[in-house]
């Protein structure tokens, strides 16, 4: 009885996730700074930011819907944290798993975007509302290729459970090669989910201040920021579990180190990509996703279907 509670609250649950996501933010920021030839923040900066925000006053706009405005950060945090438990991190088994958890994880990762939308929309400020609508418009563009690439991997493994997928790919070493195209697309579209350059359109500072979060402050903003960080960790863990199913039999400690290295490698990619490009415009972003990434993701699905037919007659 005690073990699940420990797992959920402490390790590898909420407390671990909290510190791990702050570490991830630090790594991303530091690496981004070094890529830009800057010094970057000290190691405790994300934690210091979080604590500082907790100590600040919450200001809720008079016109905003009080309840929705306050609830949305909590929703965002809860949903991303839940998703974490279904992803196999080190080893082949997630904390919890059932057949169909791939879909659940993907949807749990979509919930935060909906909370950004609702939080922004009910802030009732022009900038928040534009940001909210942009979040949602963008969601429809990147979600399709992202889902397709992950489902393509699931298709090859012939299961809807992430843990079973991990088991399949470690039983068939080398099969991950077939998913490389999907991995590239997933990594790029993940930037859209995380709202990072070149897809940071919903919070484009120079256009709409901070988008959905314009009116947020204090603890509520801290929760939102935390959930964005956790979303980054969860999204990247998902990519690592699906597309990098390597050395899953290494045992707990070595496995943990390998997991951290995988996450670090993927965060490095995120930092590199976000330093490399200018922000796209919403119409360009949608064109790119629908005209380039969606067909490529579809190609990945077809490749995997054919492979499945050829390999497992």
């Amino acid at each position: 009885m005690l073990m699940p509670i420990f797992n959920i609250l402490i390790f590898p649950g909420l407390l671990f996730l909290f510190f791990f996501s702050l570490a991830a933010e630090f790594f991303d920021r530091k690496l981004g700074a070094r890529l830009q030839n800057r010094v970057g923040p000290p190691w405790f900066q994300p934690l210091a930011d979080f604590i500082k925000l907790l100590g600040k006053e919450d200001i809720i706009p008079e016109e905003a819907d009080n309840r929705v405005f306050k609830l949305m950060p909590v929703f965002a945090l809860t949903s991303v944290s839940c998703a974490f438990f279904y992803i196999p991190l080190w080893g082949k088994n997630a904390l919890y798993s059932f057949n169909g958890d791939v879909v659940v994880v993907l949807y749990l990762l979509t919930v935060p975007i909906l909370t950004y939308f609702l939080g922004g929309w009910y802030s009732r400020s022009v900038f928040s509302m534009i940001g909210a609508v942009r979040s949602l418009t963008q969601l429809f563009a990147y979600e399709v290729p992202l889902f397709m690439t992950i489902l393509a991997a699931a298709l090859l493994a012939d299961t809807w459970s992430l843990s079973k997928m991990a088991a399949f790919y470690s039983a068939h070493p080398g099969y991950w090669v077939f998913n490389i195209l999907g991995f590239v697309i997933a990594q790029i579209t993940l930037l859209g989910k995380l709202e990072k350059v070149p897809f940071d359109i919903p919070e484009a500072e120079t256009e709409i201040v901070a988008g959905s979060f314009t009116e947020y402050s204090g603890r509520l903003l801290a929760l939102f920021r935390l959930s964005i960080n956790i979303e980054m960790v969860v999204g990247i863990s998902l990519l690592a579990a699906v597309f990098m199913p390597w050395w899953l039999d290494a045992g707990p400690i070595a496995g943990f180190i390998i997991y951290v290295l995988k996450v670090a490698a993927l965060i490095s990619l995120v930092s590199l990509l976000r330093s490399l490009f200018a922000r796209l415009r919403l119409d360009q972003m949608i064109n790119l996703c629908w005209r380039v990434f969606a067909p490529l993701a579809f190609l990945q699905v077809i490749i995997n279907l054919i492979l499945k037919g050829a390999l497992f007659k």
Binding site: L35, Q36, N37, R38, V197, T206, A278
Partner: peptide
């Protein structure tokens, strides 16, 4: 200009 189009790397390099 780089900053306005979200290309902060260009900003950091040119200002350096």
């Amino acid at each position: 200009a780089g900053h306005e189009i979200g290309f902060d790397t260009l900003l950091m390099y040119t200002w350096r």
